[in-house]
Design a protein around this nucleic acid. Structure first.
Length: 231
DNA sequence: TGCCAGGCCGGGT
DNA sequence: ACCCGGCATGGC
């Protein structure tokens, strides 16, 4: 399958299975970068809102939008359900795509109202394999947003894949650049224990590595925690 | 000054 | 199945 198309990793790591390799990469990143304080939010609902607002958008802009929502006391399912769409859009304006994102937030709170009486934390009781398809039926919630909500808001062991993850894996010859979302997700989830805290930290570390080492004008590969894992 | 950022949808081929 | 335009702001 897609995973089988992965080129073998460099000779140095040829004897390692995927679990050993991914675990080793994780330990290397953690050892040199330390734990991340990733995606701080005051509530699971705020996390879910942030997951939608950050779609293709700089987190800095999202923080402004979240601040606006807090100031307007609109960062609750009830308030957000009541607020007219254009007023909601005005509050989240700094996050970009504000009209579509206002609709997406409306879709989220409608879903929460139907499924758990507006209490998103109740969803954590349900099974991941049941929950994920449900979230994906919400218009504006695709695979990455769904996994972000599952992992960060609900503490479910759903590995989050983003552009950085895909870039790093392909750069290191582990998967082709154009690998589909679910295949990349399976690449991690088939190999690693379903540990939400570890999935959380793993994703955070990959993003930090991408930003701090790979995406520099002059990429700092010599200092990169993953330098040993290059082909 | 353009190009990009922790995507997703809808329509066309 | 793949490709593309649209959605929009603030930072560098």
């Amino acid at each position: 399958m897609g995973v089988a198309r992965a080129r073998p990793v460099g000779l140095h790591f040829a004897p390692m299975n995927r679990e050993a390799l991914l675990t080793s990469m994780y330990q290397s990143m953690l050892a040199s970068l330390g734990e991340s304080r990733w995606w701080p939010a005051e509530s699971p609902f705020e996390m879910a809102v942030g997951a939608i607002l950050t779609q293709n958008t700089n987190w800095k802009n999202v923080e402004r939008a979240i601040d606006n929502l807090k100031t307007a006391r609109a960062l609750t399912p009830e308030a957000m359900a009541t607020l007219p769409s254009d007023e909601l859009a005005a509050l989240i304006q700094p996050s970009g795509y504000f009209r579509v994102k206002a609709q997406r937030l409306k879709g989220l709170v409608t879903f929460l109202d139907q499924e758990c009486d507006g209490d998103i934390s109740l969803l954590a009781e349900r099974d991941l394999d049941e929950l994920r398809p449900m979230l994906l039926t919400i218009k504006g919630i695709g695979p990455e947003t769904a996994d972000s909500i599952l992992l960060y808001a609900l503490g479910q062991p759903s590995f989050v894949v983003d552009a950085y993850t895909r870039r790093i894996l392909s750069r290191h010859g582990l998967l082709p650049e154009d690998t589909h979302y679910d295949e990349v997700r399976d690449f991690f989830m088939d190999a690693l224990d379903p540990d939400p805290a570890m999935f959380n930290e793993y994703h955070a570390l990959l993003v930090r590595v991408a930003k701090d080492f790979c995406l520099k004008k002059a990429p700092q590969c010599e200092a990169c925690p993953l330098r040993e894992y290059l082909d």
